[in-house]
């Protein structure tokens, strides 16, 4: 029996509020694993992804889902995707790596990023204050993912529902990022 034990601290203290019809909350239990495709082994990774999760490799900028819809595969860069899913505890990497059986190089990104869910009818009016991308429904479809910068901070954006988005941002600057969102809500609505 160890003398000490460690507890997990959410980067934003489990933030969750609604202002002016905009629900903004920190994602609880985010598993985020990067998968890099070994050189010239796209087919092997595609097969492993198909077999393990029933998913296709998404193109860069696109989102694919596992057959049980529990895992989103985000096409981040040529030869690199992220698997995003709900996961409690620190060992998210195993959930992906075990099924890939060496077909991809995995790196745990769960603690690198903080997830925020923002939703509400006026969500785009809020985000246009900081997001340089066109988030209109026809310009940013349900299967799209993009990495960009908002207020000088890295952000990965994908959709969740009609008027909802998930924003992933670097953990170390997450408080500044949250502040940017709060200011945007206050200013825009």
């Amino acid at each position: 029996m160890a003398e000490f034990s460690l507890y997990a601290t959410p980067a934003l203290g489990g933030y969750s509020t609604t202002h002016d019809g905009i629900a903004l909350e920190e994602l609880d239990g985010l598993g985020l694993i990067s998968i890099a495709t070994p050189l010239d082994s796209d087919a092997a990774l595609a097969a492993a992804l198909k077999k393990g999760f029933g998913a296709e490799i998404p193109a860069v900028g696109k989102v694919a889902s596992s057959s049980d819809s529990k895992i989103r595969f985000l096409g981040m860069a040529p030869g690199q995707l992220f698997a995003a899913f709900e996961h409690d505890g620190p060992n998210a990497e195993g959930a992906i790596a075990d099924k890939l059986a060496g077909a991809g190089y995995t790196t745990d990104q769960s603690d690198v990023w903080v997830g925020l869910r923002i939703a509400g009818p006026e969500v785009r009016t809020v985000l246009e204050r900081i997001c340089p991308l066109d988030l209109a429904p026809n310009a940013f479809a349900q299967d799209k993912v993009a990495r960009t910068a908002m207020e000088h901070m890295a952000a990965i954006v994908f959709r969740e529902g009609e008027d909802g988005f998930v924003l992933l941002t670097a953990r170390s600057s997450a408080k500044s990022f949250l502040h940017a969102l709060e200011v945007s809500i206050a200013n825009a609505l």
Partner: peptide, 14 residues
Amino acid sequence: PDLDVHLISTTDGW
């Protein structure tokens, strides 16, 4: 371009 090597930052993760 044909080295099998992959990079990702984990600065904030640890």
